[in-house]
Every structure is written in C-alpha cells, then in structure tokens.
Amino acid sequence: MEKIMILLWLSAMCIAVEGNAYAEPKNLYTACLKCHQSEQVPSSLVYRRYLMRYSTPERIKKAMFSYLKAPEKADSIMPSQFFLKFPMKKKMQMNDMLLKKYIREYIEQFDVKKRLVLP
C-alpha cells in the first residue's frame, strides 16, 4: 500500500514539474511556434533572417509587430519563392500588449547573444 502511495505521489510531482517548466513557452508555443513547427518552418531560422536584416532587437521588434499586424509580401523577410509553397499569413487578431509580450519572449528565446562564447 505504501509503495502504491509513493508511486502515485511521484507521478503527481512529475506532472506538476513538467507543467510548470513549459507554462511560459507553452503560450508562446501555442500562439506562434506551434504553427511554424507544423509547417516545418524552424523559428530559429526565421529569427536569424530577422537578425540578418534588422540587426538590433529593437528594430526586429518593430518590424515583427508591424508585419504581424498587417502582413505584406513586400515586408516579409522570407524570399518570394517561399510564398509559392506557403500561403500568406493572416493578420494577427491578438491584442497589442500580448503580441508585444510574445515578440519579446520570442527574441529572448532565440537570441544568439546568449549563445556566443569564446573558444
């Protein structure tokens, strides 16, 4: 009986820890990353393309926000061939505050600065 109780408690703890660990990304994930994943467009690649064009986080934030609010082919960082395979993204209906929050989280998650080290 004791053994069954310990096993049940351990299972409950594992579920709780797992739930906490993915709480924040889960929102970003469901709001943005999930779609990218299903379409097989790696978010890290998208971020690098943003980085390559806009250089600073501030400029990226502005560019992403305006694009998500009113997606246009001309404003996209993806090459024109990309749209032959993928449809044009729909306008984001999310509230601005939340959208800005997710953009910030997105940049933080994929930021290369944290990953740079001296050999």
């Binding site: 400029r59 080290v117 001296l118």
Partner: peptide, 28 residues
Amino acid sequence: HQSNSAILHYPVSKIGNSAIYDLDKHYI
C-alpha cells in the same frame, strides 16, 4: 550565423582583439 549549434564559438583573431556591434553601434 548559419550554424544550428547550441553554443556558438566566436572567431578569435591571433593578431589582436575584435568585437561586433549592431546597427545602433551597441556592443554584441
């Protein structure tokens, strides 16, 4: 830039020090 590695090893020069800056001239 094209690497998918989790850790990015910054290229070190043998002759001196180097640094990269963004478009607003902030140190990266």
